[in-house]
């Protein structure tokens, strides 16, 4: 059965990527139950993928997890072809001022920036049960995508005469992936990293940097890059 648990929590890491928790109530029937989880990005780290059955009764257990990421070179060929098609649409368009202009530009932009990490991976959970019951199924995985990250920003208004200040803290979250995380609880973790990512921009400062950040080559082994957690903002 295909299921698409909505994200309930997303802890975004300062160096990029994050831990996604998705949860859905599923009906388990006696025997083997197979759940194909939809909308898992190919950027997910299969080693960190877990499935947990909350409030599961005795006799119900997770038997196995099947994870698969699509072939990178084949997908890249597809993506290149799509990018070529997007360029052709722009070149061949005689009038892009019509009603659908915004839609077309959005589609072309999405295609232009698409990367391997935006295609779908495969994540299947097989659960065996002796009883029939509805349980909460929670899926967790780390997304290795440097295009998703966060940065704090402070606005401080100082009154020099009264020697008092008003501090406003903001968190800027960058999601340059093709995935939507609707109304989920966000957390922000700051880590000391083994090596710093090549670039640190891409937030709301400079247009060029912001757009260049969409073309970052996503790094692998992002989890191994984490040395020590310094701070967690929830």
């Amino acid at each position: 059965m295909k299921i698409n648990p909505p994200p309930v929590q997303f802890i975004v890491f300062s160096g990029g990527g994050g831990l996604v928790s998705r949860r859905q109530v599923v009906k388990i029937v006696p025997g083997l139950n197979t759940f194909d989880i939809d909308d898992v990005p190919a950027a997910f780290d299969p080693r960190t993928a877990t499935v947990e059955l909350l409030n599961a009764p005795a006799g119900m257990e997770l038997v196995q997890l099947n994870v698969k990421r699509p072939d990178k070179s084949i997908m890249n060929q597809f993506i290149q072809r799509e990018k070529g098609a997007a360029t052709n649409i722009i070149n061949a368009a005689t009038d892009l001022r019509g009603q659908n202009r915004e839609k077309i530009i959005q589609m072309i932009e999405s295609t232009h920036y698409r990367a391997y990490e935006d295609v779908l991976g495969s994540f299947t959970a097989i659960i065996s049960s002796k009883v029939e019951k509805e349980v909460d199924l929670e899926v967790r995985y780390f997304v290795e995508d440097a295009r998703i990250k966060w940065e704090p920003s402070l606005h401080i208004s100082i009154d020099k005469d009264a020697k008092a200040a008003t501090i406003e803290g903001f968190i800027v979250v960058m999601n340059n992936s093709d995935f939507t995380y609707p109304q989920c609880e966000l957390g922000f973790a700051e880590f000391e990293l083994e090596r710093q990512p090549d670039e640190s921009g891409g937030y709301l400062n400079e247009l060029q940097e912001e757009q260049a950040a969409q073309n970052i080559v996503p790094q692998s082994k992002m989890m191994q890059n984490l040395r020590r957690m310094k701070n967690l903002v929830l």
């Binding site: 200040a165 008003t166 501090i167 903001f170 979250v173 999601n175 939507t180 989920c184 966000l186």
Partner: peptide, 22 residues
């Protein structure tokens, strides 16, 4: 809680502290 839309930056209000001595 917030919604992260594809290819968008989101600016979230985190905290506000007034009368902070400096």
């Amino acid at each position: 809680k917030a919604t992260l839309l594809p290819r968008e930056n989101v600016r979230l209000a985190w905290f506000k502290a007034e009368n902070v001595k400096f």
